[in-house]
């Protein structure tokens, strides 16, 4: 018959027979633990948002969702309310463009400029064509003679 094992009869040890931790382990452990602690600035940040830790996980998730949706709504609102540029600003900035460039643009861009438009312009500023139109008086007269009479009304 087996002898029943009784725990009270067994010599009591303060802990199980396990191998000791490496030599000097408890000397190094405090340093290792201190190195793992959150840094001061991180702690300050945590304190700033510390109130979040008092909320339940479900409430924190809800709060995060509201913040994200709010961000989207704000971005949509901001993108739709861009101020309109006053028309006068465009006119003012057009004045700064050299006249020759403007005429060059009108001649090459396919913009619809009638001969009458040019006639009005040259009537107001007789020397305007000197910068880009290098034709002799004879050539000009020949060109004018070739124009239909109704279109040379303003000349």
């Amino acid at each position: 018959m087996k002898t029943a094992f009784k725990l009270d009869a067994h010599p009591r040890r303060p802990r199980p027979l396990l191998s000791e931790p490496p030599a000097g382990y408890f000397d190094k452990l405090p340093t290792q633990i201190m190195a793992r602690l959150p840094q001061a600035d991180a702690r300050e940040t945590a304190l700033g948002w510390g109130w979040l830790s008092f909320l339940s996980p479900a409430l924190r998730t809800g709060l995060a969702s509201v913040a994200v949706l709010g961000g989207f709504a704000a971005s949509f609102y901001m993108s739709g309310s861009a101020p309109l540029v006053p028309a006068t600003a465009a006119t003012a900035s057009l004045d700064a463009v050299p006249r020759t460039e403007l005429v060059g643009y009108l001649l090459t861009s396919g913009a619809r400029v009638e001969n009458s438009d040019l006639a009005v312009l040259t009537a107001a500023h007789p020397a305007i064509t000197k910068g880009f139109l290098h034709a002799s008086e004879e050539e000009l007269n020949d060109a004018l003679d070739a124009q239909p009479s109704d279109e040379s009304t303003y000349l």
């Binding site: 802990r15 396990l18 405090p30 201190m34």
Partner: peptide, 19 residues
């Protein structure tokens, strides 16, 4: 203070966990 706390209780905590 925390360093003192660790030094005071590290052995007990370690062996409690180790068991």
């Amino acid at each position: 203070a925390f360093n003192q706390l660790v030094r005071k209780y590290q052995s007990k905590v370690y062996w409690h966990v180790r068991k």
